[in-house]
Write a protein that binds this DNA or RNA. Sequence first.
DNA 1: GACCAGGTATTGC
DNA 2: GCAATACATGGT
Length: 277
Amino acid sequence: MIIKSIDEGVEISGVEKFSLEETFECGQCFRWNKVDDKYYGVAFNRSLCVYYMSENIIMEGTTPEEVKSIWIKYFDLDRNYIIIREELSRKDDFLRQACNFCPGIRILNQDPWETLCSFIISQNNNIPRIKGIISRLCKKFGDKIGNDIFTFPSAKTLSKLMEDDLKEIRSGFRAGYIIDAAKKISCGEIDLEKIGGMSLNDAREKLMSIKGVGPKVSECTLLYGFHKLEAFPMDVWMKRIMQELFKGKSTSFFGKYAGIAQQHLFHYTRMMNKQSN
DNA sequence: GACCAGGTATTGC
DNA sequence: GCAATACATGGT
């Protein structure tokens, strides 16, 4: 992997088995949008335009320094997913199919607060609408950092709101949950810095003390926001997959990269299902 | 119009 | 404890 400055921004060359489409469209994040084969998004208060061709990632509107300090980690580019997929593929035949179907997925290192808040919004909701709510949340309460580009609002900012203030983002019954989370984070009752260092079970328990955060949302936060790769979000899709294809097995069957296995299984199954509609 | 969407809190047994 | 139900909103 070589990072070099080019006219448009930065080029990272020699990146094998990588797909922005699979990474951004597999349900782990909600702030990236495709326009003419390039993805535009915001993370960690920076906006980015990114695309991938012939084993090169091109990042526009950034610098090599920022790439090294933020985006390499964000896209988890230092990890060898090829080896991990081989390892997972040996465990089970269907899992191997899933790994072969989307061999370019990466588990993003997203901001913990943004991830927590986003998955609170995700409950009993569909992905297009989740994206809409988050987009309106950022537009109304985030900082403007470009032409119609906004940061994700901080917990502190949202902690000062009343439920009615969230009326216009149309988050529905989740408004109270968002504010409860924001309050618990900003007052220090829950310290997100510490959660990363806790045991998985302690972290789960702590996150679930927030109203509107149950097993699924806490697990998503740990996998996508804290990069706990053994976390395994169990939504309706995964429950069905476990029931039908991994009967009698627990998630520990997938080992320390269970979260990566989960992401491939989830995406594969959903895509297959979509085609038959 | 009923039904569903990467669930969770609340209620009733 | 565990099964049912309500919860806002928008798409199909």
